[in-house]
């Protein structure tokens, strides 16, 4: 495992834990898109189903379990917890996420490495992950004033994908992967979606002011 891949995994893990701890500690989820969280849960379940069929390493299995359980916990808090669910911005979080699920599933049926259950699930999870942040970005834009922790959550999530792209470039040159166009394209789209957010995040950090996204 190269350093980019490891840093990617760590920023990814950190983003999910930051969000879970924020919700757990403050008992609020304002500014957090439940739709994005449900999409991520679906992404993790679709991709990490191989947990039960293919053993790769202890690191791999533990991380998969942590990702599935922590995102399930976030969804559970937002849907079921008596205090947390009342702070959910339901009226603002209106993105039609079922459209994203349907579109990426069809895409996975057409573009996959092999027409098998495992490969279709894998391609679906990659495509869905690329666009899963959209409801969250729309919600952040509507709320204008972004909570520090929510801002950090999106920042680490974006950093994760950027590190993964560096990892793929590194692997491409050191191991010679030639048929990895699915994650390449999806990863570039996914990272591109964050570009705007990153720009305002750095501005707020540089000027030491609260993050605010333009309408």
């Amino acid at each position: 495992m190269n350093a980019f891949r490891f840093l990617g995994d760590m920023t990814h893990l950190f983003s999910v834990l930051v969000l879970l701890l924020k919700i757990y500690a403050t008992k609020t989820c304002s500014g957090v898109s439940r739709k994005t969280q449900e999409l991520y849960l679906l992404v993790f379940v679709a991709r990490y189903l191989d947990l039960f069929t293919d053993y790769i390493s202890l690191y791999n299995s533990v991380m998969k379990i942590v990702f599935i359980t922590s995102s399930a916990a976030i969804v559970w808090y937002m849907r079921r917890h008596p205090q947390v669910r009342r702070t959910y911005d339901k009226e603002q979080d209106t993105f039609r996420h079922s459209v994203l699920v349907a579109a990426t599933f069809v895409l996975a049926l057409i573009f996959n490495d092999r027409f098998t259950f495992r490969e279709i699930c894998w391609a679906f999870s990659i495509y869905l992950e690329a666009v899963a942040i959209l409801p969250q970005l729309v919600l952040l834009q509507r709320c204008r004033n972004v909570d520090n922790l929510t801002g950090q959550y999106v920042f680490f999530l974006g950093a994760y994908r950027a590190f993964y792209i560096l990892n793929w470039i590194y692997r491409y040159f050191t191991e010679g992967h030639h048929s990895r166009w699915i994650p390449w394209i999806a990863g570039l789209v996914q990272t591109g979606l964050y570009a705007d957010f990153f720009y305002y995040y750095f501005l707020s950090w540089k000027n030491n002011v609260k993050l605010e996204l333009p309408a």
């Binding site: 490495d113 990892n167 030639h178």
Partner: peptide, 10 residues
């Protein structure tokens, strides 16, 4: 093979 190496990522 090339299928397995992508599945070792998260």
């Amino acid at each position: 093979d090339s299928d397995d190496e992508k599945h070792d990522e998260l």
